[in-house]
Amino acid sequence: MKHRSLVATLAVLGLLCALPPFLPRFYVYIASIVLLTGLLATSLNLAIGYGGLYQFHHTVFYGVGAYGTALMLTRAGAPAPVAMIAGPLAAALLSLVMGVICVRLSKLYFGMLQISLGSLVWVTVYRWYSFTGGDDGIHGVPLPDLIASAKGSYYYTLAVTALSLLAMRRIAGSPFGKTLQGIRDNPVRSEAIGVDVKRHKLAALVIAGFFGGVAGSLFVVVDTSAFPDMMFWTYSLEVLIMCLLGGMYTFWGPFVGSSTLVLLRVFVSVYTQYWGLILGTILSLVIIFLPDGMLGFFARRFRKGEVRGA
């Protein structure tokens, strides 16, 4: 089984490496966006799917990761590797601070406090023209030649996304990840058997924030820009939808959900300006009829088949 999944992973990676020469420039860009959005959704899932934490404003970390990297490159003139790490670290730090404030609350209250803190960050970025560029954002971020072209940024995004997903997969499967799921399913019992619930939750938040920040810094590489809409509340809800659409209680679900949505949006936008209508309809149908998401649905069907066979 382990052997098979390794082969599958290598096959997908090989396919993704071979893709760019056959695609027009625009689609290479879209492919990069698909990858980094998948990373963003997977990082959110670590908090919400594995940790059961109502991370309602995850894109704040995405935005801070992007601004961290973009500001280091434009204002500080820092070398690219430093900037690439600074963004995610800033996101992780913010996640720690917000986590310390929010973690004692549960469910809806946790989510709402996070929304208010996140909105505070958003409003500051949105208003601070002299530093963040306000609502115009930052454009034309200078990048090293190696990752400046569409193909270069694609391969960089692919490499970083693959490594990040691998790391998150390891984390999710580790004793820490299992404990986290235990806390999600029964916090009281976990506490009783001696698990430090708050510390585990906080760690999950910081990890999720860090990888959200990685996705943000990748966005700067791909799009050479950062803007406040990246961390507006409704975008957080869209990323939540991606997780839900693919299936929250699976590792790959959010990635599948986000790829589906990003690609669907690109193709639908050619034909109609009413993307919201389409997304809203799909989403409400999924919530009403398939609450486990696409992967959850297929997994269930598959398992049912197994049972019938046995």
């Binding site: 109502y54 809800l237 939540l240 300006q273 009413y274 919201g276 209508l277 989403l283 919530i287």
Partner: peptide, 24 residues
Amino acid sequence: EREHLMLLLLTFSFALIIGDLVKI
């Protein structure tokens, strides 16, 4: 009976639909 998260996202989907209907 659904959990908050699902209701939040369901109402968000209605918000998207209503927004586009208003646009139409």
